[in-house]
Nucleic acid binder design. Sequence first.
DNA 1: CTGTATATTCAGTCTGTACTGAAAGTAATG
DNA 2: CATTACTTTCAGTACAGACTGAATATACAG
Lengths: 174, 174
Amino acid sequence: MTELTGVQKQYILHWGEMGTRWGINRTVAQIHALLYLSPRALPAEEIAETLSVARSNVSTSIRELETWGIVRAVHVLGDRREHYESMKDVWELFRLGIEQRKRREIDPTREMLRQCLANLDPKEPGADYTRDRLAAMAGFFEAVTELHDQMKRLPTGTVRKLLRMGAKVRKKAS
Amino acid sequence: MTELTGVQKQYILHWGEMGTRWGINRTVAQIHALLYLSPRALPAEEIAETLSVARSNVSTSIRELETWGIVRAVHVLGDRREHYESMKDVWELFRLGIEQRKRREIDPTREMLRQCLANLDPKEPGADYTRDRLAAMAGFFEAVTELHDQMKRLPTGTVRKLLRMGAKVRKKAS
DNA sequence: CTGTATATTCAGTCTGTACTGAAAGTAATG
DNA sequence: CATTACTTTCAGTACAGACTGAATATACAG
């Protein structure tokens, strides 16, 4: 096991903190940071030692990262252990992260809003007002979903290019 | 104080849960949901009763919402109490929310990445690899910042329109 | 089939954040 | 300026989720 360099520590710690703010477990985020910086796949044991967390904690965290599709197990010749590596394409990384959140947060909220609008009793006091508010919120979530669908279909790299184009257009217009 | 209707309860509870997943305090999110649905500004006392939380808890939570700029205190003639109302423009609501997160998460991360790249000792083992990874991540955050800056300058409503346009283009192209 | 290496599960514990209620603070009214 | 109405602060407590380590399961090697 290799000791972490100062820069690696800095990155991993920061990433862990950011994770917590995004509702991502600190250890999960740290493990991801470690794997992202690592040029080779690492066995769970080594991850546990490097980050000073329990082996079992690594097991659980890795599984979470695997379900998101941003970490996968690979095998090394002559080694029985699973070695884990992170996806390195940053854009794809975030695309997958966003995908997860959409499924867990946006979609259920859209559903809830639909339910609410369906359940609304027009005889209730203030039903019209409530409907307006719910409809406005629902409209937003539909738009976000639409945007997400569009981005999803663009090949990787296109978003990046569009962004650069947009930047130029903005500069000219101003 | 008016009792909540079924739909209101459903919305407020769901919003509270969503909040927690986004690192937003459940009570804060519920209060926002309540105010969003309310056609009139509500005094803290009434909020506390309606949501069954301590008056002091409402005080703290409201303050948080105020600092984000999505809730403000208004006065009602003949009433000494502060009444609170939520911003109702959903797009503006999320714009402000995103602004907060950017300031608290994106900006510090950009700074950290810059620091890391500056601190990198080329003599360290694997420094080149580390630099590549950090640079890729930094590039992403720069792009996100760029995107945010662009959106910020567009008048409200334009984003909505662009989105609809994009949807049409996608349909034609497919 | 036995022993060993590795991975996962889970009950209990720890930790940080949220929440409460009492106390202190502020401001309006008569 | 005393009283009342309202708001904020804060010390202590409650609670949810994270973490550990021991027990259990799985898989490979000889």
